Simulated scan of single mutants.
Amino acid sequence: MTDRSRLGDLIINRMKDVLGVAMDKDVAEHFGIKQASVTNWRKRGTIPIDQCIQLRQEKGVSLDWLLLGLGEGEVDAEYVSQTGDPFYTEVPLYDVEASAGNGAFFDQEQIASHLKFRNDWLTREGLHAKDLVAVRVSGDSMDGTLSNGDTVVIDRSKKKPDGVFAVRMGDALRIKRLQKMTDGSLRVFSDNAMYQPETIHPENMSQIEIIGQCYWRAGRVF
Rank of each mutant, 00 (worst) to 15 (best):
A112I: 07
R156S: 00
D162M: 06
R14V: 04
S37A: 15
P202G: 10
D85S: 09
V80M: 10
L93D: 07
R217T: 14
I111M: 11
K180S: 14
D131Y: 00
K130N: 06
R174T: 07
Y215M: 11
H114L: 07
N148H: 09
R14E: 03
M142V: 02
D120K: 06
R124L: 07
G139T: 02
R187L: 15
A166W: 00
A98Y: 13
H128V: 00
S5M: 13
M142T: 00
G149V: 01
V21G: 13
Y94R: 09
F189V: 01
L115N: 08
A218K: 11
L67N: 01
A166S: 02
S206V: 04
M15F: 09
L186M: 11
A112H: 11
V133M: 02
V135F: 04
P92E: 11
D17A: 10
S157P: 02
A77I: 12
F117V: 03
R136Q: 14
P86D: 04
P92C: 11
I175W: 05
D140Y: 06
P92H: 07
R42Q: 14
T39Q: 12
M169P: 01
I12T: 13
G71Y: 12
L70I: 15
D76F: 06
T199K: 05
C52W: 05
S206F: 05
A193N: 07
Q207F: 03
G60C: 08
S185C: 07
V80T: 08
I175Q: 06
E90Y: 07
D183H: 01
Q57E: 14
G73F: 05
I211H: 00
T199G: 01
N148V: 03
L7T: 14
I12A: 14
F31E: 10
E58P: 02
P202I: 09
I53W: 08
I210C: 05
L178P: 04
I11N: 05
S157M: 04
T145L: 08
D24S: 09
F106E: 01
D171V: 02
I49V: 14
K116Q: 12
A134T: 02
I49Q: 14
Q207A: 13
Q108Y: 11
R217D: 02
G163M: 05
G69C: 13
G170W: 04
D64A: 10
I53T: 08
C52P: 08
G144F: 07
K59I: 02
Q179I: 03
T151Q: 09
I211V: 12
A28W: 11
R14D: 01
F105A: 11
Y215K: 05
N192K: 11
Y94M: 06
E29R: 14
D50Y: 12
P48L: 04
A28H: 08
H30C: 05
G144C: 03
V18L: 05
K43P: 00
H30A: 08
G84K: 14
D85H: 08
G20T: 10
